[in-house]
Design a binder for these strands. Structure first.
Lengths: 225, 225
DNA sequence: CTAACTCACATACGGACCGTATGTCAACTG
DNA sequence: CAGTTGACATACGGTCCGTATGTGAGTTAG
C-alpha cells in the first residue's frame, strides 16, 4: 500500500471539497465585513471580489445577503459553543462548570468581532429566529446538567427546563444590553457578571442562598459613581 | 379685539405651520411603516406617496432614511415619556411612583407598534446612540427622585447616578430581551416584572430587603414549566 | 477511453431604490 | 410691488441586488 490514498485525502480536492472551501472563504470574508461595517453597509460585489469570486458564486452558495448573514451568525454561535466546551471541561465541579460557562459566554459573545453580528444586526436581519438560535445552543445539555444538579441536591427543586430558560434569558438580556452600549464600560460589564452571580445564588439551596453577591454589588455603587 | 388673532391660530396656517404639518405627517406615516415592515423593507418612494408628497419633500425635511427613522424613534420615546408622567402622577408615594414607572415602561415600550422600532431596528440603524437616547430619557428626573428617596431614608445610601444607571440598564435589558422574542410569552413578561421587583427590593433599606420577590418567582418555576 | 452529464462558477440583464442637483411657485418682507 | 426665501416637485446618475443564462472543468457510464 505504501503511500496509498489516505482516508482524508489532503491534496487532490475533488469538486465537492473545492466548493466547500469557497463557501467557507465567503463566510470568513463576510464575517469580517459584517463585524466591522455592519450588515447594511456590506456590498455583495465588494464582498465577492475580496473573496476572489464573483457574485454568481456567492448566490450559488447562499440565497441572498440575509442567507449569507445567517450562515455567518450560525458559525459565530457554533464557535462560541466549542470555546464553552473547553471552559466547562476546565472545571471539575459540574455546578462550577455551568456557572463558569455563563460568565464566559458574556465575555466571549461580547468580543468586538462578535457582538455586532450576534446582538445588533441579527435581531434586525433575522427577527425572532436570532434569539431562538442563540437560546437553543446547547439547551438540551444545560437542561440535563440542571436536572442532575437538582437530583443530587445541589440546587433547589426547580423545573430544569424553566430554569434553563431563566438562565439563558438572563445572560442574553445582559449581552443584548451591553452590546447596545458598544460593549459597555468596565463597570457595566462587572455589574452584569455580578447580577448573573446573584441569579446563581438564588438557584442554590437555602444555606447557600444568601444573596451576598447582590449586596456586595449594591454596596459598591455607593463608592464608584 | 373681538375675535382677534388667537395665540394659536387654528386655520390660517402660514408656510411654517404647513411645513411642520407635512413633517409630522411623514413621521406618522413612517412610524406605521417602520413598525410593521421594519426599517430595511420600507421604500421611501412608497412612504412619500402614502403621505401624499414626493421624495423631494421627504429629503427636504430629513437627510436620509436613517434621519427619518431617528425622528420616528425620538417621537416614540417622547410619547412613552408623557405616558409615564401620567403613571407617576397617579401614585401618591414617590417610591411607588418610580416603581410603577419602571413596570409601566416594560409594558408601554413593548407594545407591538413600538418594540420593533425601539429595540430591534434602532440598534442596527442608529448604533449605540439608540440606547443612549432611551437611557437618558428623564434621567435627570430619576436621579433627583432617587436622591430625595435616599435623603429621606427610604432607600439604602447609594449613589443616585449609579443607581439610576442600574435601574435603567435593568429595565432596558429586559425590554431588549423580550423584544427579541416577539414580545415574549406571558410567562416571560411576568418573569421580567418579577425580576425588576427583585431589584427594587434590593435597593430598599435592610428591613425591607428580603428578596421575597425573587423567591416567589423561583418557586413558581417549580410548578409551571 | 470517450462521450454524456453534472455542477460550481462567471457573465449579462433588468429593475428597484437612493441621494443630489435643479426647477418652480407661493408666501413673506421691505 | 418687486425681491427674496423656502417648501416642495422633477429629473438624473449611480449603486446594488436577484435572476436568468452561458461555460468549462470534473465526474461518471458504457
Amino acid at each position: 500500500m505504501s503511500t496509498g490514498p489516505t482516508p482524508t485525502p489532503p491534496r487532490p480536492q475533488g469538486r465537492a471539497e473545492a466548493a466547500e472551501l469557497t463557501a467557507l472563504r465567503l463566510v470568513a470574508t463576510a464575517r469580517r465585513a459584517f463585524a466591522v461595517q455592519g450588515f447594511a453597509q456590506v456590498s455583495l460585489d465588494a464582498l465577492a471580489a475580496e473573496a476572489g469570486v464573483t457574485r454568481g458564486a456567492l448566490h450559488h452558495h447562499f440565497q441572498n445577503q440575509a442567507g449569507l448573514f445567517e450562515a455567518v451568525f450560525r458559525a459565530v454561535d457554533a464557535e462560541i459553543g466549542t470555546e464553552l466546551d473547553v471552559v466547562y471541561e476546565a472545571q471539575s465541579d459540574p455546578w462550577a462548570g455551568m456557572k463558569a460557562c455563563y460568565h464566559a459566554y458574556l465575555d466571549l459573545a461580547l468580543r468586538p468581532d462578535r457582538a455586532r453580528i450576534l446582538f445588533r444586526d441579527a435581531p434586525a436581519v433575522m427577527g425572532a429566529r436570532a434569539m431562538d438560535i442563540l437560546m437553543n445552543s446547547g439547551f438540551a445539555t444545560i437542561v440535563e446538567d440542571l436536572a442532575d444538579l437538582i437530583a443530587h441536591g445541589r440546587l433547589r427543586p426547580l423545573d430544569p427546563v424553566a430554569t434553563a430558560h431563566l438562565l439563558n434569558g438572563a445572560v442574553m438580556a445582559q449581552a443584548l444590553w451591553l452590546a447596545g452600549c458598544e460593549g459597555g464600560t468596565d463597570a457595566q460589564r462587572s455589574a452584569a457578571h455580578t447580577a448573573l452571580e446573584a441569579v446563581f445564588d438564588g438557584l442554590t439551596l437555602p444555606p447557600y442562598a444568601t444573596q451576598t453577591a447582590l449586596d456586595v454589588f449594591l454596596d459598591s455603587l455607593s463608592e464608584q459613581p
